[in-house]
Structures are given as structure tokens and as C-alpha cells.
Write a protein that binds this DNA or RNA. Structure first.
Lengths: 145, 145
DNA sequence: TATTGTTATACTCTATAACTATA
DNA sequence: TATAGTTATAGAGTATAACAATA
């Protein structure tokens, strides 16, 4: 028989962690063949939606420290997915855009991600899935305000 | 102005990750003065609810690999929070129990955790908080079945 | 043969300090 | 003075392979 979790299964943090790990494991199986992590996917998505944004802006939006972002964005540049060009208005800043190859890959990743979302929606039921969005956003907003 | 997340804020995985990080950051501020991580707290809680359970049983229940559990449980043993005694029925197995000192600390941690839960409940509203439990448990059950 | 606990090891993620070149 | 990007580095967390003792 499985061990008793005690008060643990009433704690939102425990439930969130286990759910997040399971959901990430599901999406990662779809991304693995492309050599892309969930974090990589989020970066590509934000660059696509904000072409020309600065490197530290993108990192900050996703809660990634600029110092840890350097090797991550470098890998994607070396793979030819992202272009880093000096900003014309601020010579300290590197403007990020997707390359055509990056656009093609991201479109494929979006299809994979949508299939994953469809699985999660079917698993929970569409109403329950939609009902999760607002409280999760409210919880995410605790720290930074 | 903040960068556009695009389709990212419709993805359950992204929302779960950001929410989990924010919630963990909140509980960790309460645990920090005790030198206890959320993972340590979950281990102490499961041992308290299942005294005498084997080391690998406890690890497996929490999704921790037995190999990574060794240094974690050793730290708690060295701190005098957990006792590891050879099982009388299976000489391969180490039975885990809390020491009196571990019981005292866990009671204090439970109070801290409850204050945290109360904050989260107040932030979301009690009904929204309770409504999260079931879908999160369903999501967590995706992988292992 | 399978399981419990262990060591060794490697890879990713995250965090801090310090630097440069610009603003 | 402050900010964008960088380097170096250290600490967690997590993963696999291999082993001894026991079932």
C-alpha cells in the first residue's frame, strides 16, 4: 500500500510541483526529438512575439537571470535559430530575432505544444482546464507583484 | 511595456511553472531560518505519517530517486532529525522514524506551512483554492498512471 | 534473479561577484 | 551612476552505471 502523504496533499505547493513535473514530462517527450527544452520553447516564443527585443528584456520577462541566459541564447544562435544583432539605438544591447529556420522550427513546436495542450484539456475536461488559468496567474503574481 | 508572451500564457505548463516557483518562493522564506527545503519538509512529513517505512519507499512516494535520496536523508540524520535503524524483517532495509527533535521541528514547520497556506487561500479566495486541488491531482497523475 | 542501499559521476539549473562598454 | 551583456564559479537538483548485501 502506498505511503500516507499526511497534510502534504492539502498543500498547494506540493500539488503544483507534482503537476508541473508531470505536465513538463509530457511536453518534453514531444520536444525531445527537436533538442528543445520547455525553457528554449518559451524563449523562441517570446522572441517571435517581440522581434528586436533586447536580450535582457527577453530573459527578464521569462524570469531567467541575464547571466544564465547567455549560454542558452548562444546555443540557439549557434544552431541558427536566433539572430543577435547590435541595437542601432543602444550599442550595449543585442536585438533578438528569429531566423527563417527558427520560424520554421517554432511553427512545428507550436503544433507539438498544441497537441500536448489538447491532451491536457481532454484529460481534465475543457471547462476545468480553462478554470485553471486565472488562479494560476494569480499565484504566479505573488512574488514580483 | 512588458513583452508579449504570445501563446505561452495559454499553456498550462508555463502557468504551472511560474505559479509553482512563486509559491515555493513564499514557503521557502518561512522555512529558510530552519535550514529546511520544501523537499526536506515533504520527507519529514511522510516519515511522520509512516513511521518505520523503508528509505526507498519514502523516496519513491515523493518521486525522489533512491540514489539522490542518500545524501538528503544523511543530512537530516546528522542533524538529529531522523533515525535510521535496520529493519528487523529485512536486513537490507533502513527503517526511518523521526527523532523527538525531528517531531518538534516538524510541528513548527507545520505551523509555518499552515500560515503560508492561509496566505495563499486568502490571495485566491477559499473556494478558488479548494477548486485547484482536484485538477492538480489529476494532472500529477498523468505520467505514472 | 530482484531489491535495498550505496558510491561515483555527469549534466542541467540556478545564484553571486566582478568585469567591459556603453548610456 | 546605472544598465546590457559577459565571464567565472559555486551550489542545488537530477540522471545513469555499477556495486555489495540480502531477499
Amino acid at each position: 500500500m502506498a505511503l500516507d502523504l499526511g497534510p502534504l496533499d492539502g498543500h498547494i505547493g506540493y500539488l503544483l510541483r507534482r503537476a508541473q513535473l508531470a505536465v513538463f514530462a509530457d511536453i518534453m517527450t514531444g520536444f525531445a526529438s527537436h533538442g528543445i527544452s520547455p525553457a528554449d520553447y518559451s524563449v523562441l516564443t517570446v522572441i517571435a512575439g517581440n522581434p528586436g527585443a533586447g536580450q535582457s528584456q527577453v530573459a527578464e520577462r521569462l524570469g531567467i537571470q541575464k547571466t544564465n541566459f547567455v549560454p542558452q541564447i548562444r546555443r540557439m544562435e549557434e544552431r541558427g535559430l536566433v539572430a543577435r544583432t547590435p541595437s542601432p539605438t543602444d550599442r550595449r544591447s543585442m536585438s533578438l530575432t528569429l531566423t527563417p529556420e527558427g520560424e520554421v522550427l517554432l511553427a512545428e513546436l507550436h503544433r507539438t505544444a498544441q497537441a500536448h495542450v489538447d491532451r491536457m484539456r481532454a484529460h481534465l475536461g475543457p471547462e476545468a482546464y480553462e478554470a485553471l488559468r486565472e488562479p494560476l496567474m494569480r499565484l504566479a503574481a505573488i512574488g514580483p507583484g
